[in-house]
Design a protein around this nucleic acid. Structure first.
Lengths: 223, 223
DNA sequence: ATTTGACCGATATTATTCAATTGGTCAAAT
DNA sequence: ATTTGACCAATTGAATAATATCGGTCAAAT
């Protein structure tokens, strides 16, 4: 659906929906509640979206975009921008600060509800982590990651650590979990030590590649 | 319960129970089925265990013991035994090869079923990962882990990686997951690069500390 | 002495019904 | 032209009852 009417209101709806979905989950959030929270009536929702599912998918696109944007912003304003460890660290901060994306990554059935099972449209589980391997490979050829490592393994370890970041509550004793910032910095430090080439890596190339991938990702989201 | 009668049969029962629990889960496995699979009648089960729960807890002790034993065995017969990366790597192999322990670590509700919610006895979520932080601290003071790192963070990263090892199926696209051995070696390599002191660390001390902790752990399990 | 499995009560499952809720529409109000 | 909310069909889920299953026991069999 591409109703270009009243984008400000559409944003308000998406914002309201995000919060409700994250808090109550897809199933337990009604279209009425979303409308009410956004300060409009139910009918208006259907002026913007074909169905609840359609709204949800718009929301996925919206949040994915916001996540990528936040990530990029962090990188741009990061002193040591180009290193993989900085890129990765910033992706973790961005992921951690976006509860909806975190839920998506976690495949949290509490939040995603019945949508998780149907899963027609997007959500081939690739939205957040899929391109990671290409990314690693590109970074390797650019000399930003040691090339003697298996790209598949590195990418997967990155996935595991990101997954762990947003999934360990409820798995281990809460006071075994460090302060979020400490953890992210620790993880980034690990990455740095483990995968940065001896010569320190090519920062500019790294940053440029990331920008490309993000632009690519944005286009993927549009359509 | 400490019926010392017929330990061979008890082992058979535990073995049968393990397989059934792992495959069908706690709730969907009946005492009858366990008895049948172990080649005894239901009554015999209650000669060895007070209740289904009691059997399950015996099983937790049994498997925890088996896991620790397997871990130790691997370490003993490991060329470069004392390094933390080797210890950690071997713990991952041991965890990965013990489906029940993996399920415990994962807090897999499919396997643990209703027991997970009641959770009276053991299972303060500490069985597999709890002591990890002490372990890291001891290793640090023994000079086997860089002491400028936050023990809590290291321990938690270790937990995340172990958790990821046994939890990523169903979260990411299956063919994003590397061969198990490749992954474990990759993780161990990460650990090695990130936390081994510049001087290579004190191997003998490390090995000794581990032995102590394992003995301790064994005693904890007994009672 | 040891083992068995029919038996029992409690719990869980299934079937069925029926009222309430929800996603989605659209005639009326603004 | 835009927005609303009463309205509808479909789905959900609460309530109930009927049924089956299962954990646990123990008198009888071995």
């Amino acid at each position: 659906m591409t109703k270009a009417i009243n984008p400000e209101r559409e944003a308000r709806i998406l914002e309201a929906a995000t919060q409700l979905f994250v808090h109550y989950g897809y199933d337990k959030t009604t279209v009425n509640e979303i409308a009410h929270a956004a300060g409009v009536s139910k009918g208006v929702i259907y002026l913007h979206f074909d169905s609840k599912d359609d709204l949800f998918e718009a929301l996925i696109r919206h949040e994915t975009n916001a996540y990528v944007e936040a990530w990029m912003k962090r990188i741009e304003s990061d002193a040591n921008g180009g290193t993989i460890s900085s890129m990765y660290r910033n992706s973790l901060y961005a992921l951690n600060e976006n509860p909806f994306m975190a839920a998506m990554f976690r495949k949290d059935s509490k939040v995603l509800g019945s949508y998780l099972h149907r899963m027609g449209g997007l959500f081939k589980s690739e939205q957040v982590q899929g391109t990671r391997m290409e990314f690693v490979q590109m970074m390797q050829s650019a000399g930003a990651i040691r090339s003697d490592l298996d790209a598949k393994v590195i990418a997967h370890i990155m996935n595991i650590l990101a997954y762990g970041l947003v999934s360990m509550q409820g798995v281990v004793d809460p006071d075994c979990i460090p302060e979020t910032a400490d953890l992210i910095e620790g993880i980034a430090d690990f990455m740095d030590r483990a995968i940065t080439p001896a010569d320190g890596g090519n920062r500019l190339a790294g940053k440029e590649i990331l920008r490309q991938l993000i632009d690519q990702s944005k286009k993927d989201i549009e359509r």
